[in-house]
Simulated assay, not measured.
Amino acid sequence: MYTGKLVFAQAIDHLPLHTLRRCIQLYNGNRHVKRFSCQDQYRCMAFAQLTYRESLRDIEACLNAQSNKLYHMGIRSRIARSTLAEANEKRDWRIYADFAQSLIQIARRLYADEDLGLELDNTVYALDASTIDLCLSVFPWAHFRQTKAAVKLHTLLDLRGNIPSFIHISDGKLHDVNVLDLLLPEPGAFYIVDRGYTDFERLHQLHQALAFFVIRAKSNLQFRRVYSRPVDKQTGLRCDQTIALTGVRSARHYPDPLRRIKYYDAETDKRLVFLTNNFTIPAITVTDLYRYRWQVELFFKWIKQHLRIKSFFGTSENAVKTQVWIAVSVYVLVAIIKKRLDIPASLYSILQILSLTIFETMPLNQLLTEDDPDMTHSDPHNQLNLFE
């Protein structure tokens, strides 16, 4: 007897499945496929992410134990781990990369009016990379060190909603700063980066594209002071200067003036120096912007803890990228559901609830908005030190 949609099916309803079909058609994903389609593959992998499955055998056992519900989940064939493994190995990972990017665009529109707590109308991005260690003998394509393999997840995070707007998956050898070459700078936007992205030639390209950046200065920075503005030292500010670079290479690569701001963090007893090409916003706002850069660190920590990207279901480059992109799409899907249904619970709480109720038929908005005091708690993990 029909009693309503499964929670899993209700969550999938928030996906633009017509876009998924277009992505599949673009890369001939279902070519020569008789039974286990790309849509079935996506649903199985999304199920694995939502319910914390650890292996293909785990996915097979759990789904076949609920075989009478597979049709209502949108899965049209029986699940076999060999079939799913073959699909992950052979079906183009770009299908799921493009689909995830379309979800990101939907989520960014939903979160466009989010309040950052700063008096800024500009879009603010945080750029960073996270390394996922792998076994060299099992993943020989993911070169990192002589005895280690790894993949790097380079992410540009839109801080309004913590939605990844750009993701690049590379082997472990690609230096973080090289990803700046892949970005299309957005005029008027702020890009917050750490010292690892110090490359004045690339930063000057951001400046010429009319984008702004905030970066921590290295201790060996060579410069001369051009002008100093008064600061309120009670706020922790120590100086607000206009400087010119004097290093042989840095002066050639960045010939324009820069703004140098020194800040004392009383909590950690550290003195921090920031560089930016924006001369109009208050100096204290520059320091606050850099604090927000830690949101991208928390994003990496969150997806590593709550999504399945530390242990992979396949060993080929295609299988790894397929799993990562589907994990990202599930993260964005949960963010979309949270916004569309106006759910006060954190993403962590929503994932925990979904993981236990995926085969239930309770309405999704009722399930996620019940007045449970635990649901309103944020991620229980400790906040990272902002200026380490």
Rank of each mutant, 00 (worst) to 15 (best):
D58C: 05
D58V: 05
D58R: 06
I59L: 15
I59W: 14
I59A: 12
I59Q: 13
I59E: 13
I59T: 11
E60W: 10
E60P: 14
E60C: 09
E60K: 08
A61I: 03
C62P: 05
C62Y: 12
C62M: 14
L63R: 07
L63A: 13
L63Q: 08
L63K: 12
L63Y: 09
N64H: 08
N64C: 14
A65N: 02
A65K: 04
A65Q: 08
Q66G: 05
Q66N: 14
Q66S: 08
S67R: 11
N68W: 01
N68L: 05
N68H: 07
N68I: 02
N68G: 02
N68Y: 03
K69N: 05
K69V: 00
K69Y: 01
K69S: 03
L70H: 01
L70Y: 01
Y71M: 06
Y71H: 07
Y71L: 07
H72E: 11
H72A: 09
H72L: 04
H72Y: 12
M73R: 03
G74W: 01
G74H: 00
I75Q: 01
I75H: 03
I75Y: 02
R76P: 00
R76G: 05
S77H: 14
S77C: 13
R78C: 08
I79R: 10
I79C: 10
A80Y: 11
A80C: 08
A80I: 01
A80S: 10
R81M: 10
S82L: 07
S82H: 12
S82P: 02
T83G: 07
T83H: 02
T83M: 03
L84Q: 05
L84M: 07
A85H: 10
A85R: 06
A85L: 10
N88C: 02
N88Q: 08
N88D: 07
N88S: 02
N88A: 06
N88M: 06
N88I: 01
E89H: 14
E89N: 15
E89V: 06
E89M: 08
E89Y: 12
K90R: 15
K90Y: 11
K90D: 07
K90H: 12
R91H: 11
R91E: 13
R91Q: 13
R91M: 07
D92H: 13
D92K: 13
W93Y: 14
W93L: 03
R94W: 01
R94H: 08
R94A: 04
R94V: 04
I95Q: 06
Y96I: 04
Y96V: 10
Y96W: 15
Y96R: 09
A97D: 08
A97C: 13
A97N: 06
D98S: 13
D98E: 14
F99S: 02
F99H: 03
F99I: 01
F99R: 04
A100E: 08
Q101H: 14
Q101F: 11
Q101W: 08
I104Y: 00
Q105T: 11
I106R: 12
A107M: 03
A107D: 01
R108E: 15
R109F: 03
Y111D: 12
Y111W: 12
Y111V: 06
Y111P: 08
Y111N: 12
A112C: 03
D113S: 11
D113M: 07
D113A: 13
D113P: 00
D113H: 14
D113W: 00
E114N: 13
D115A: 11
D115L: 03
D115K: 09
